[in-house]
Amino acid sequence: MTDSFSESSTPIVEVQGLTRRFDDKVALNDLSLTVHRGGVFGLIGGNGAGKTTLIRHILGMFKAQSGSVKVFSLDPVKDPVGVLGRIGYLSEDRDLPDWMRVHQLVRYSQAFYPNWDSAYASELMDAFDLDPKAKVKSLSRGQRARAGLLVALAHRPELLVLDEPSSGLDPVVRRDILGSIIRTIADDGRTVFFSSHLLDEVERVADRVAIIHHGQIMLNAGMDDIKQSHRRVTFRFNESTSEAPAIHGTLSCEGSGQEWTYVCDGQLDQFRNAGQAIGAAVVDEAALTLDEIFVARVSG
């Protein structure tokens, strides 16, 4: 995992100062983000944080109102063929032409991608347990996601963009199919960019994570770095207080009386020393899950 997203590798997605407004609502606010080639990039954020808006800019479905978006060093709006031909995309609402049958969908999609791998498409069809004669309209939400994933994967894209890929998938499919596919693609040296609100899933597969909140990137770092830099530390103070004593580096805290639990970001030693300097003793220390880190970041 640690080799992925090396800063020295080629940037595959470069977003600079991107702002997007829908009437009065600011969906993206001067957002900048770089995704390097290789590995799994997880984009997490609450509802309405701007995840899908950002993805739609990357795909050229939104034109930047200000700022710039480059994918493979190309403008996705000006050069949709150059960009989209190298991307596989699964949309959040699993938008597919309902009137087609699955085998028609595969044949239609094949025409657009010179690198289409028919053997791989058949393999995925079997793995996903899709009936080629079934109408897309009659597929369940999970089957629909699998059909969408099939056409997104079969041309072996350099960049796979998945918008809430787990939505509608049962836990088994999520773990066995989606997880393994994402890792396989990443291990192939290709890039996966996916958004999700299922943080345990992101934690399991992502090499790098960005948290988007109110249209801005709040945190963008490697998964290992994030987990190492965020800790929960419980201090016992000499005196009981109604409010938590302030310690530099605090993201959030809760507790009462003499015992307060802090979530910190940064150098753990410095944080611990800062607590001890105001007369507190460390009672407990623990690692955080991505879920806890996200909550601390967003609500703290």
């Binding site: 949709p80 063929v81 031909g85 991307i87 995309y89």
Partner: peptide, 12 residues
């Protein structure tokens, strides 16, 4: 325009 069509790699 649906997401599916919008992301087909052809020009306008």
């Amino acid at each position: 325009m649906g997401d599916f069509l919008a992301t087909r790699p052809f020009d306008n």
